[in-house]
């Protein structure tokens, strides 16, 4: 039982990674340039769009004021293992868009 399941996981991961590459090629410039740039070059809104949908639906930036985002983003930094740079850029974006 264990082995086939493990293999299925690995296989589906590979298939998905494959799909993704072909999609981002096709998307060209119009979509988010995901794999091209390292996290260091990504802007706050892109980091927000990429990271904040990984576990749950995104809540609108306007759902909190600056002080509330300070607290929620600290929470998410720890929960989602974000780096200091990601945390700062996303927080700045949320504060500019709320």
């Amino acid at each position: 039982m264990a082995k086939p399941v493990c293999l299925t996981f690995a296989a589906s991961a590979l298939v998905l990674a494959g799909c993704q590459t072909s999609h981002s090629h096709r998307a060209g410039g119009q979509a988010t340039p995901t794999t091209a740039a390292g996290a260091g070059q990504k802007g706050g809104s892109q980091l927000w769009a990429e990271n904040c949908i990984r576990c749950h639906n995104v809540r609108s930036p306007s759902s909190y004021n600056d002080a509330e985002w300070d607290v929620a983003m600290h929470h998410m930094r720890v929960r989602a293992s974000l780096t200091a740079q990601e945390h700062k850029a996303i927080l700045e974006f949320l504060k500019s868009a709320n």
Binding site: F9, A17, T21, T34, N51, R54
Partner: peptide, 8 residues
Amino acid sequence: LPIPQLEL
């Protein structure tokens, strides 16, 4: 995360 959308 080989890409931002996928995590193993």
